[in-house]
Design a protein around this nucleic acid. Structure first.
Lengths: 108, 108
DNA sequence: TGTCGTACTTCATCTGTCGTAGTAAACTTG
DNA sequence: CAAGTTTACTACGACAGATGAAGTACGACA
């Protein structure tokens, strides 16, 4: 299992990735992250939902409700253009981060 | 420049790496991290020194003073066996982290 | 004598994560 | 159809690690 301090800084990126190919909502995103990471990373509920708040406040995602849906009270999110730009930035940053951290790693 | 939330979780690892081939002290380690990362990462002083405290408290490094040194008040550190084990753990974890995060990265 | 580089230390603040807990609808299974 | 499980959140408080700002103090150099 991956410790959270390592991933911290990429939770937002993961969520944004999950919204790249269309809108989704908390529970679904959570499941998808878990599945895509092959159970190696499970985002805590509180982390996920507080990330939504932050991302929306920063204008990277926008929330809405689907009406006509049988009372499931889901909050859907979609990525904004700013969110996409931010995501791409993070991807570039990740390449550099890998390069840098790898200099400090000794393979056994 | 790399944002700190990304690296957070690997500051300790970097410091330990710097102690793998012998004792060192704060200022030197700081310089070496900067140099090795090719200026891409500069650890803040407060981050560095608070990391020392934490690492020592966890038994991963031990501090000492060299006597006979002309009053430069340096605190030297060396890595312990627990520190080495912890470092190796972190290296393994890093491999997994890379794999996981890369699943959420789209190359342009 | 003053400034720069070295080598820290203290303190207060902020951000993001996490544990605990609770709500409530919908689906499942005996 | 009752009871448990899954879905889908929300609220609150605590905590760790990073950070900014500021200060101390020695030595070198010019």
């Amino acid at each position: 299992m991956i410790s959270s301090d390592v991933i911290r800084g990429y939770n937002d990126t993961m969520i944004l990735y999950m919204l790249l190919d269309g809108e989704s909502y908390g529970y679904e995103i959570s499941k998808n992250i878990r599945r895509l990471s092959e159970e190696k990373y499970v985002m805590k509920e509180t982390t996920l939902y507080s990330a939504f708040t932050r991302l929306e406040k920063n204008g990277y995602i926008s929330s809405f409700h689907k009406d006509g849906e049988s009372g499931k009270r889901r909050t859907y999110y979609r990525i904004t253009e700013e969110g996409l730009a931010y995501y791409q930035e993070k991807c570039s940053e990740w390449q550099i981060t890998q390069e840098v951290v790898n200099k400090f790693i000794k393979e056994p």
